[in-house]
Simulated assay, not measured.
Amino acid sequence: MVNIFDNINAAAKDLEETPQYKNLAEALKAVHENEAANEVFNRFQETQRVVNEAMQTGQEPEEAQIQEWQEIAKEIEQYDEINKLMETEQALNQLLMQINNTLTKPIAVLYEEN
């Protein structure tokens, strides 16, 4: 019997060798090295987490929370380091979507056959 997690763990290690992963690591390091950018980024992440938690529990985020998140999002535009981080996150996300499509292709084929 195949242990699929052996293959997945190997793929996870391979992911760390991709340009997308390495670019993300460099971009994240640059954000952490800029104290002001890092502070804004941390506030953005925390606000985003609160908004996401509210939505996941079926609640509407409070208007003040949404407004705060939008204001911080505007602040982010001032920092090239954060903008670069977001670009690299998108590139890695595209790679992960391709990987997911490849991984789940047998399931899609199974449904197409029936």
Rank of each mutant, 00 (worst) to 15 (best):
L110T: 08
L103M: 00
T47G: 13
T57L: 13
I99E: 00
L95C: 01
T88A: 00
K29W: 06
Q65R: 01
T47I: 12
E46P: 03
L15G: 08
H32Q: 13
N23Y: 04
K22W: 04
Q45N: 09
Q78A: 15
Y21M: 15
E75S: 14
E71L: 10
L110F: 09
D80M: 10
E112V: 02
K105F: 08
R49T: 10
N34V: 12
N34D: 15
N9I: 13
I4A: 13
N38V: 02
Q59L: 13
V50L: 13
K105R: 07
A12R: 10
Y21H: 09
M55E: 11
E112F: 01
A54V: 01
L85G: 03
M1A: 11
Y21N: 04
R43V: 14
D6R: 12
E112T: 03
Q94M: 03
A64I: 09
I99G: 01
H32P: 05
E17P: 01
E26Q: 13
M1S: 07
E112H: 03
L110R: 06
F41V: 07
N7H: 14
L110S: 04
I4Q: 05
A64C: 04
I72G: 03
N3D: 09
I107R: 00
P19H: 07
N7T: 15
T102V: 05
L96V: 13
L28P: 02
M1K: 05
E63T: 14
N83S: 11
I4H: 05
Q45G: 07
P61Q: 00
A64T: 10
Y79W: 06
